[in-house]
Nucleic acid binder design. Structure first.
Lengths: 155, 155
DNA sequence: CTTTTTGCAAACATTTTGCAACTGG
DNA sequence: CCAGTTGCAAAATGTTTGCAAAAAG
C-alpha cells in the first residue's frame, strides 16, 4: 500500500458514489495504483493489473485501452493525479485524502528512482508571481532531477 | 529577438566553432528560435522556419525531421533548452548566455499564454532535499499553471 | 433491462531511424 | 572531395476514438 495517497477502498468507494461501476479490470487497476509507492505509467499499471488477475488461459484480461480510459476517469474524478517527469509519457499516483497536502518528486536520471518530498516552498513564490503578473496560480509542477545516492557513488 | 536567451548569431557562431555546418534550414530554424519570446514546439519552429525561407515554388524547404534533428543537436550542444509543459510534446528555448541564470514559466491553462519569471527559490529547497535524501540535485523543473489576467476576467 | 464498460481495430500525434542523395567548407 | 546534413519513407511510442459485444446494477 502506498503511504501517502488514497487507499484502494477509498478510491473504489468514491467511484461507486459517483455512479461508476466496479469491474474486475477497475479493481485490479486501482489495486495496482494504490499499492505503488511511486507514480506509475499507464503501461506499468496495465502490466501490474494483468499480473494481478491474469491466468495462464487469459494472461491479459485487462486491455491497455481500458487502463488509459480508467486513469482519465480517475483524474477527472479527482482520485488520481497525473504527473509528467518529461519522460515522454505520463505517470499517475493516487491523490492525497487531504487535498492541501501536495508533494513533489526527485527523480534519478540514471536509474529512474523516484522519491517524494513534501516540504514545498512554492506558495510564497506563487503569491509573488500572482501579484506581479496578474495570473491566478492554480497549481504548479516541481520536479528535481539528479543522481540518487547509489548512482552518485559510481560513474 | 528574444530578450533573455542566446542571440541568433551567438548560436550560429557556437555551432560553427563546434564544427557543425551552417545550412539554410539551420539558419531559418535558429532565427525562428531566437526571435521567439516563449518556448516553441518543434512543429512551431518548423512552420516558422518555412514561413521565413519558403517560396511559392517550394513552400517547405525545411523538413520536419530536420527540425527534430536540429533541436536535438542544439540541446546536446547546450544552445537550447527543452521544456516540458505536460502538453504531450516538448518545447524549446534558447539557453541563457549566463549559465547560472535560469528561469521558469507560468502557463495559462485557458489561452496557453506563457510568461517567464526568474525569481526562483528552489535552491534552498534543493539543498535541504540533498542533505536528507542523498540525491545530488542537478536541475529542476518548475512550472506554474493557472489563468492569465485576461482569462480570469471572463469565465 | 438499461446504461456503463470493455475489447478490438484503427486512427492520431509526436518523435526517431535507415538510407540514399545532396552540399558546405 | 568528403564528412556532415538533408529529405523521404517508414517505424516506434504513447494516447485516443468508433463501435459492437459484454456485463454491472
Amino acid at each position: 500500500m502506498n503511504c501517502t495517497g488514497l487507499s484502494q477502498n477509498a478510491i473504489l468507494d468514491r467511484l461507486k458514489e459517483s455512479g461508476c461501476r466496479i469491474t474486475a479490470p477497475r479493481k485490479a487497476l486501482v489495486a495496482s495504483l494504490a499499492e505503488s509507492h511511486t507514480p506509475q505509467s499507464v503501461i506499468e499499471l496495465h502490466a501490474a493489473a494483468n499480473k494481478r488477475i491474469g491466468t495462464p488461459t487469459d494472461p491479459e484480461p485487462v486491455n491497455l485501452v481500458t487502463a488509459y480510459r480508467f486513469v482519465n476517469l480517475l483524474e477527472t474524478q479527482g482520485l488520481a493525479r497525473r504527473i509528467d517527469f518529461a519522460q515522454g509519457y505520463a505517470r499517475y499516483e493516487p491523490t492525497h485524502p487531504d487535498d492541501a497536502h501536495h508533494h513533489h518528486h526527485i527523480v534519478c536520471d540514471q536509474c529512474g528512482k523516484v522519491e517524494p518530498f513534501d516540504d514545498c516552498d512554492v506558495d510564497e513564490l506563487s503569491a509573488r508571481i500572482e501579484a506581479r503578473s496578474g495570473f491566478v496560480v492554480m497549481r504548479h509542477q516541481l520536479e528535481l532531477y539528479g543522481k540518487c545516492a547509489d548512482c552518485s557513488r559510481e560513474p
